[in-house]
Every structure is written in structure tokens, then in C-alpha cells.
Design a protein around this nucleic acid. Structure first.
Lengths: 202, 202
DNA sequence: CGAGCTTGTTGACGCCGTCAACTTACTCCG
DNA sequence: CGGAGTAAGTTGACGGCGTCAACAAGCTCG
């Protein structure tokens, strides 16, 4: 057995490394994550992590992958997978998406940026991210089928929707939006404008 | 005179530093920028830059500031400042905005991210960025006055529009959108959806 | 021409990621 | 049950980084 809960010396260093890196990422951004500092915090030597990850990038990739899993769970919990959720489905998913980003800013940046991670080298990440996008495309399709929105290229529409939500999350995370602004209202306004712009008019 | 074109030893090291840093940023991302490497490229010692910038962060701030100036020029050239530009004004500005981001990805990330630069410490940056946003708000206001779009809080509407365009630029820059996708079409679809979602209906 | 400021260089420090060589601790087979 | 083998963790070392202090060179201007 390789990574059960009661491993050799430390307990389960691999999981501890992932957790600590994730915590540091959301505390001080990706740049604050340091192999040596992680070691210090876990009471372990600087290069201990190299028994579990090939290099720092591999550790970050694993953290990003965990982030995608968490995001997927969140979106599923909120009805992304339920075709019968009606008109409220897109706004709900959008809200959950932005919330996730706000709660895990470092994670989110890591997942959807390419500064720290070169995504091309990690098809696993690409795949899980694409899976989430496909979910969005299928939501768009079901809106089209129920006649709610215009019948255009679902991929284009999905990109537009994703872009709007991602942009909002991104602006909020990067501190570009005045803190006085009501975040929930902004999310609502975004999804409403989006839906209205895509809506089929008779 | 402090920074004329024919300065002491180098010529105009300050300007050369800015240009080289900007070039490196768009070549290999912010993380590829290194005080020592800039020195090497300019045939100057590693710490020469410290005569012109307090530290690396200050250099990056200056590069970002130059980027904001360039972006502002672009947007003005395309009609951001012209109140008589009609319904095409927002789409044109949106397109120019995304184009700028695509042509200067490293710059754009630097300007609107907080990983490399802590914006709070640099009110100058904050101000110029706010100036651009105010320009957008005034565009929104003029749309409202001409009865084209709903009369809602102009700031909210501006944030939604900015979010959509920034999100699109961001997704493109970070390589999240399949390269097969027609970028111009995507920009058009985004601005059209946006405008349609904000449009006043009689 | 020479004092004094500006500009650039060098040496040093403590960080960082990472590799190789080593030690420790566990497993498992005979 | 004891020893071999392997997995996990440590230490030393290397080169790269940002940055500071001490120094040198070069220009300006009285």
C-alpha cells in the first residue's frame, strides 16, 4: 500500500503536503508557496516533498487537480447535473462558480492561470477542466431545447457565459472591484444580463 | 535633468530597463523577468537597475503603468472618448480591449492581476485603472440617456460589461479556449449578447 | 581644474529549487 | 525471527535569485 493514512514516518506526508500547499496558496498566493517553507510548517526537511512529487510544479498541479474536483462537486451539488432544474439552473451554477473562486482565490488563479502551471504538459488537468466546460455546454443545449435561449452555436454561447462569470470572479479576486459593491447583487446582475442577452424572443 | 535621452554611462538605462522588462514579460511571462537577466541582456551589471527603481516590484509597477497608458491610447483611438459614436461604441471598445490583451498578454496579466504587484501599495496604478473604468461608466451612461439600455445602476452595468470582456480576454490569454475557435466571432458574440442583455425593451 | 553628485560595479548575504549521497524505519520472505 | 530490500526522510552542495553596502567611474558646474 502506498498512501494510506498511517504510512511510514510521518503519517501521510503526501496528503499533508497537498493540504499545506493549498492553505498557503489561498493565504499568500502561489508565489508564497515554497518547498522549504512547506517543509518547515510540517516539521519535515526541505526536500522531503521530493519523495512524493517530482518537483514543485507537480505539487502545484496536484493541488490544482484537487481544486477542480472540489469545484466539480460544488457545481454538481447545486444542480449542474440536473436537467430538470429549469431556468434557475444557469444562475445557480454561475453563483456557485463565483463563490468558489472567492473562497479559494489562490486555488482559482492556479487552476485557470498559466503562470504557475504550464497546462499543456498536464493533460489530466486539461481533461477535467474540459469536462466542466462540457457540462456548461450541455446546460446551454438544454436551454436551447426548451426554447429558452437562441439556437446558436452552443460552444460560442457557453464561452460567452463562462467568460462573463470567469471575468467577474477574476475581477473580484484581483481586487479590481470596489469592496463597497454588493457582490451578490453583481453576480445576479451578471447572470440576469447574460440570460437576457441569450434569450429567444418570439 | 534626470532622465533625458543621452544620460551618463549607458544612454538611457531607465527607458531601456522598462523596454526590456516589457519585452520579457510578453515573451515568457512575469516570472521570467529577472533583475539579473535584464542586466545581462542590456550588458549592464546585475544591480544597475537599482539606481532607477527601488526594487523589482517598482520596475514592474512602472511597466504596468506604461501598459495602462498604451491601453488608454488604444481605447481612445477607437472612440471611447467620443460620445457621438452611437450603438457601435461599446462593441468597438470591447474589441479593442480584448485585442490589446491578446497582443500583450504578459502586460495584461500584470496590469489586472495582483500576483506580481500589490496594487494597494501603488495608488498611481489604482488611479489610472479607475480612470479607464470611469470611461466605461460614462459610456454606459450615454447609452442610458439615449434610451438604448435599461436605466439601472451604471456602475453595476459597467462591472458586468467589463467582467464579460475581461473574462473573455483572460480565458484567451490563459489558453482556456480551443485555438480552433474564431476569436473575432467570439468577441462579437460577447459584445452582442451583452448589449442585448442590457437593452431597454419597450 | 577639482568638489560633489549621479551612475554603475563588485562582494556578500540569505533566500530558493533541486540533486546525490546518506540514514532511518518499515515490510516481508525464508 | 532475522536479515535483505525498499520506501521515506535528511543533509550537503550547487547555481540562481533579490538586494544591500562599499566602492569606482564619469559627468556637471562653480
Amino acid at each position: 500500500m502506498t498512501q494510506n493514512a498511517t504510512a511510514y514516518h510521518h503519517g501521510d506526508l503526501r496528503a499533508a503536503l497537498l493540504a499545506e500547499a493549498a492553505a498557503m496558496i489561498d493565504e499568500g498566493g502561489t508565489s508564497s508557496v515554497t518547498m522549504r517553507e512547506i517543509g518547515r510548517r510540517l516539521g519535515v526537511s526541505r526536500s522531503a516533498a521530493y519523495r512524493h512529487f517530482a518537483d514543485k510544479s507537480a505539487l502545484l498541479v496536484a493541488v490544482a487537480a484537487a481544486g477542480f474536483d472540489r469545484l466539480r462537486e460544488r457545481l454538481e451539488a447545486v444542480g449542474a447535473g440536473d436537467p430538470d432544474a429549469g431556468i434557475e439552473r444557469l444562475p445557480r451554477v454561475g453563483r456557485a462558480y463565483v463563490r468558489f473562486a472567492l473562497e479559494n482565490p489562490g486555488h482559482y488563479r492556479l487552476m485557470y492561470g498559466k503562470e504557475a502551471i504550464t497546462r499543456e504538459d498536464h493533460p489530466e488537468l486539461r481533461d477535467v477542466a474540459n469536462g466542466l466546460f462540457d457540462e456548461l455546454v450541455s446546460i446551454v443545449r438544454s436551454y436551447q431545447e426548451s426554447g429558452t435561449i437562441k439556437r446558436q452555436d452552443p460552444h460560442l454561447q457557453a464561452y460567452v457565459a463562462w467568460g462573463a462569470v470567469h471575468g467577474l470572479a477574476s475581477l473580484l479576486i484581483e481586487g479590481q472591484i470596489l469592496t463597497a459593491v454588493d457582490v451578490d447583487g453583481l453576480i445576479r446582475q451578471t447572470t440576469a444580463t447574460l440570460l437576457d442577452g441569450m434569450r429567444a424572443r418570439r
